[in-house]
Design a protein around this nucleic acid. Structure first.
Lengths: 330, 330
DNA sequence: ATTTAAAATGTAAGCAGTTACATTAAGAGG
DNA sequence: CCTCTTAATGTAACTGCTTACATTTTAAAT
């Protein structure tokens, strides 16, 4: 079978306890002994068994990233970015990462329990039920790109207000006074943040917020294009439009092309997310860059801090700042 | 501490062996006994401990998806799709899924061993070294979107030749006789397949393959645009261009716009992957749809078949067929 | 009612580590 | 050279489940 710590013990003439210590806490073992141990381990191709270790330590070092979303595409560019950050940061540690969609929170909770997961990062629209289930099972939770009232949960979110400010103030700097918005119905949290921030920033700058200048649409490009056509096919149309994300903004550009409006001369467009689409539209799309990878990394850091004890003093909500990438659409 | 099988045994008056069987092999246990067991388990909130189970069975039920890629974006739309398929299929089973990038094969191998992974799905450009390491550790391997000579490995791949045929024959059907290609340097496997298929299909249809009609470029839209400008800025320019993927094809459309060529009247464009970009370009891009999700699912099925014994008779290479999604660019 | 085969259940020895506690070795100081 | 303190190592119980093997129950057949 596999070589075990006992085989190494036999060959090296050192007790299993010391071998165990050589691997997990080398400082406790004298240099010379340690060398004997590692030599024997080398010879036998010994590698500690994580399962047995988990069993004995009553710790699994397993964390999970659960994406609570339904629909065709779960891992869109945004969540893929977060996922990469999570993977990258997890790779640095000894933690193992499970990734799963979680349409059904009950299932997710069961999985977490039976798989002995110690902490989860919840992406998407996590439900309160789900969170309380995790908490009752003593599983640490970090939210990403979401917030949940009624729970004292650490969350890692992008600075939505700041991002919208960058986008809209850029338009204002360019001289625009009549600015519209198309808001796609993505997650409630995101849409709420961006919508509110948009209104607030216009107000702060003493600009008018006509109802007609804000349109809601479904989260796909066709719907966005339709909404933008309505918005732009008027004499008093806005001279600039903020799309609540890049897909929406791409729809605005499409609408402009159909109406034979020039971008950015007749109408400037700004998107959000700085996705791959930005290089594809004609003209290229100015957009708010969200540092998804950093968000993912921070989630793992938070979670590990909680699991390794300490936690307590960490700020509850970690804000990741955005950056405006200016391209030809403005 | 946690409730264990012994607690359930005590409360229900049934031996631990029978309790174990009630959970993992209910058929072996009489209905009435089983009920007693589950009742007690319910009362105690007992849930089997996967770690202990793995320890006792000498099986971990853990598989991993390793993406061997470097660069900024690992989880692009394509791999995200595969990943989703893998997650979905894994969710149906009792297997646990670890996901990791694997820039360094040596690291990957160590991880796999220490984390007691039983099988891996290798995406991207897996190296032969890596595969032999896994095999020597008795870890089952399935390749996805790749093939490796010298190894008798099961692989799940998209039908590249078929996909290219769909794209190019569609152009031929539309009356095009002078067809160009822009090939981005993505993974060697993919580019080789698509390039060769392109040549073969032109030949099969008795069409000329002038060297000038095929351009290589780096895998980004700027480089593709430059290559397309060269290709299209000639009197004898092709009337249709096949981009080796959607990003490349989007570059072709950009080039056409700059040269004031109308798409599809002056030049038709076909892409590959049917990504989110297709709805964004103006006009929308005809593209070869790859069923990534299905590929992911098939990987898991193959791997589980191998792990659960049987395997043997399964076809070594599983081909997933493509589908041409015709839009306005042709 | 008795025999017998099959089904259900129980007993207890692993699985491969960790770690509290006991023991021994190594230096330090007299 | 002998204490004494501290560092290093060893002993063995423990983690929670599975399963080969032993034993008991059940039901069918005589």
């Amino acid at each position: 079978m596999n070589t075990t710590i006992y085989d190494v013990s036999r060959l090296s003439g050192v007790s299993t306890a010391t071998i165990s210590r050589s691997f997990s806490n080398p400082a406790q073992v004298r240099e010379s002994t340690r060398r004997k141990v590692f030599e024997a381990a080398e010879v036998l191709h010994y590698y500690p068994n994580a399962i047995a270790r988990a069993m004995a330590r009553q710790r699994t070092d397993k964390i999970a990233f659960l994406i609570c979303k339904k629909g065709a595409t779960i891992l869109d560019e945004f969540y893929a970015g977060i996922c990469e950050g999570i993977m990258r940061e997890t790779n640095k540690s000894d933690y193992q990462l499970l990734i799963s969609t979680a349409e059904d929170w009950r299932m997710a909770a069961n999985v977490a329990k039976s798989k002995q997961i110690e902490g989860v990062i919840l992406g998407g629209n996590a439900q309160a039920d789900m969170v309380s289930e995790f908490q009752s099972q003593n599983i640490s939770v970090v939210l990403v790109n979401n917030r949940m009232s009624g729970f004292d949960l650490p969350a890692v979110v992008s600075d939505e207000a700041g991002g919208v400010a960058q986008a809209v103030e850029h338009l204002i700097d360019r001289g625009h006074r009549n600015i519209g918005m198309i808001a796609g119905r993505f997650s409630p949290y995101i849409i709420g943040e961006r919508y509110n921030a948009f209104l607030r920033i216009l107000q702060e700058n003493g600009l008018d917020v006509g109802d007609a200048n804000i349109k809601m649409c479904e989260p796909n490009i066709e719907s966005a294009t339709r909404a933008a056509l309505e918005l732009l096919d008027r004499k008093d149309r806005p001279t600039a439009v903020f799309g609540s994300n890049d897909v929406i903004a791409a729809g605005v550009i499409k609408a402009a092309i159909r109406l034979r409006l020039r971008v950015p001369e007749d109408v400037a467009v700004v998107g959000y997310d700085d996705s791959i689409l930005c290089g594809v539209t004609e003209p290229e799309l100015t957009s708010v860059h969200v540092n998804c990878r950093r968000m993912g990394e921070l989630c793992v850091e938070r979670l590990q801090a909680m699991l390794d004890g300490g936690d307590g003093n960490a700020p509850q909500v970690t804000l990741v700042s955005t950056e405006l990438h200016i391209r030809k659409s403005t």
